[in-house]
Design a binder for these strands. Structure first.
Lengths: 181, 181
DNA sequence: TGATATATTCGGCATTATCCGAATATACTG
DNA sequence: CAGTATATTCGGATAATGCCGAATATATCA
């Protein structure tokens, strides 16, 4: 007699538990501007004991292979999943979930935010050059606003530099100190 | 003889400078998952000396009033703009840009992220209940993963609490210390 | 309350995003 | 290098979003 005879609802309860978390991950994906399918695919990898292949994911998710393929590429760019190859498995790609969201966030800062900040700063500098030396009240007021924004972006830049080079533990300890102060 | 005779390109240079910044703001909006129009509308407010009415914004942006109206509501929810009424102006609403992105970020943490974290934690707890006491290897492994995630979300929660209650200056000072350590 | 100025909502059209299956490209193996 | 297993790309169907103008709702003031 096997498990399911002995305790007929084990599988169902396990299934329910996972489904609960997968749903939450779909919602989370939505909040951060990703499509729900990404949340579900991430969740499947999150619960996997071993890296999953594209075909594994296709089977479990019931999405088309093309869908899973592009999703994996996006999730990889976001550092939410990692791609590995396994010796002896040929071209086959395997994916696993990154479970430490802090490093995911750090990578987002490094790649997306940092790039936004840099291009904004370049634009602000160009705008400043256009206005510099203009004998015009309106121009002076614009200039002041632009410089203020530029200062804020400078501070953001250093903040990003610090955040992307600190472990979460280090940061958490420091913030703990802040709370007590 | 007026300004434009004396220095014919003042207006154009001012225009160019603003357009440079507005473009950058449209790109930034895109990066953070908003539509470009939001970036432009925010930019118009950013440069305004005084609060602007819906009709002002319609005129300057050349979007339809309905578009501007819904955009203002969204930007308001994100705390990127503030709505004010002006005594003696009746029902008319006036908008101004929030120039401190740190408070914008704080509000986003408070409203969106905090909510995501809370519902995820609730889901994780429900999932844990489903699995608790199950005599099943797979269930135990799932349980361990869920608990690990739960611990991470707990830490996130306190991090959010701290971040949403500290001024940028305070935080920046602290992080400066971190850098030197 | 009625008149007026303003804001919001709604249906529709155009654009974009998602997802699919088929076709193509790519990497590995013998 | 041919053959095979795998991944990616592409065109098309469907759903979602952005934007509009007209219709409706709401707030203020006489």
């Amino acid at each position: 007699m096997d498990d399911s005879d002995q305790e007929p609802d084990i599988d169902e309860r396990r299934e329910r538990a996972r489904e609960e978390v997968l749903d939450a991950m779909e919602r989370a994906a939505e909040i951060y501007g990703l499509s729900r399918s990404y949340g579900r695919l991430y969740g499947l990898l999150f619960f996997a004991e071993e890296p999953m292949s594209l075909d594994d994911l296709v089977e479990r998710s019931e999405y088309a292979k093309s869908t899973v393929s592009t999703a994996m590429n996006s999730l990889q760019r976001l550092h939410l999943v990692h791609r590995r190859s396994i010796p002896g498995e040929g071209k086959k790609a395997f994916y696993e979930a990154e479970r430490d969201f802090w490093t995911v966030f750090q990578e987002f800062l490094r790649r997306e935010v940092r790039r936004e900040v840099d291009t904004m700063i370049r634009s602000l500098d160009r705008a400043e050059q256009h206005l510099d030396g203009l004998d015009d009240e309106q121009a002076q007021r614009d200039l002041e606003k632009i410089r203020q924004l530029r200062r804020m972006y400078d501070r953001s830049q250093s903040l990003i530099d610090i955040l992307t080079s600190s472990s979460l533990d280090r940061l958490a300890g420091l913030l703990e100190r802040l709370r007590r102060d």
